[in-house]
């Protein structure tokens, strides 16, 4: 059997492992190591301790930032999965030309710069923004609404808007792969639209839904730029706290400990997503 592995194959595998090791495993290991160091007189002291994790666990301010961030990410994930399904379902089985235009409309925002999208939402929600000026000129409100920006609600709205394509596209792509014969069969046997959805479409599009929720949750939990730019003083998140430790406070060890926490949360989400994508009945069938 060993004859199957030629020298070239071995070399290629070794290269792949080396690239993964250098680009992914090594940086993560450095991160992990830093999370056990500490700061002393603004220098990083390379002495092993759990002090950063103890601080994280014992400081109520940091604990509540963590909980608040998880809650935010869950809300965004839920909203976007629902909206993503509605949009994907509406796009499904359209005529060829319309179909293409709709996919394009969803995908184009992905090509735009992240920062530009955030500024666009910020300009839209601001007191001089499009939303306020429209509402004022229509006479719906007398004074511009100030509470649309620089708080947690603004972070939630912006995350939902910016991350929406990551929900729509995976769901839509798995929907496309559902054989139309199955849907026709269900309809022929008298299933209502609701029944078709819950017994045929939704289960078969589960992998796409899982992908959508995982992506959205991971992006929402880790983002720092949106909270930083639209969150104001109270829309504070884990990502922003990590940014503060690296970019402003110069406390890399504590920032690294926070980042490790974020990686653990992210990996958990990915594992759960995998399970959701392959529910037990599907695994058994395979």
């Amino acid at each position: 059997m060993s004859g199957r592995f030629s020298g070239a194959t071995l070399a290629k595998s070794a290269l792949a492992v080396a690239i993964l090791g250098v680009l992914i495993v090594l940086p993560l290991a450095v991160f992990l190591a830093h999370s056990f160091y500490r700061m002393e007189d603004r220098e990083i002291v390379r002495a092993f301790s759990f002090a950063n994790y103890a601080e994280l666990a014992s400081n109520p301010a940091y604990r509540s930032v963590f909980v608040q961030t998880l809650w935010l990410a869950l809300q965004v994930t839920f909203i976007n999965t629902v909206v993503g399904w509605i949009v994907a379902r509406a796009m499904w089985r359209r005529r060829q030309r319309l179909h293409f235009a709709l996919i394009l409309a969803v995908a184009v925002p992905l090509l735009l710069s992240y920062v530009i999208k955030i500024y666009a939402v910020r300009m839209f929600l601001g007191v001089n923004g499009l939303l306020n000026s429209t509402l004022t000129s229509l006479g719906i409100i007398d004074e511009p609404l100030g509470f649309l920006l620089f708080n947690m609600a603004a972070v939630r709205i912006t995350l939902c808007v910016v991350l929406l394509p990551y929900s729509i596209l995976p769901i839509f792509l798995t929907l496309e792969r559902v054989p139309s014969r199955l849907v026709q069969a269900a309809e022929d046997l008298g299933a209502s639209a609701t029944q078709v959805f819950w017994t045929v479409l939704f289960p078969l599009a589960l992998p796409g839904t899982a992908m959508a929720t995982t992506l959205t949750f991971v992006f929402a939990a880790g983002d720092f730029l949106i909270p930083e730019l639209v969150g104001g003083p109270n829309g504070f998140t884990l990502g922003r706290l990590i940014f503060t430790q690296f970019g402003l406070a110069y406390n890399w060890p504590f920032g690294a400990a926070l980042a490790v926490l974020l990686v653990v949360v992210t990996l958990t989400a990915v594992v759960l997503g995998q399970r959701l994508a392959q529910p037990r009945w599907q695994r058994q069938n395979a």
């Binding site: 700061m39 930032v65 109270n234 922003r240 706290l241």
Partner: peptide, 16 residues
């Protein structure tokens, strides 16, 4: 200690 000040400020920003 600017380090202490950075620490206090980071706690202020993280507080509810």
């Amino acid at each position: 200690s600017l380090e202490m000040r950075a620490q206090v400020w980071s706690e202020v920003k993280a507080s509810q």
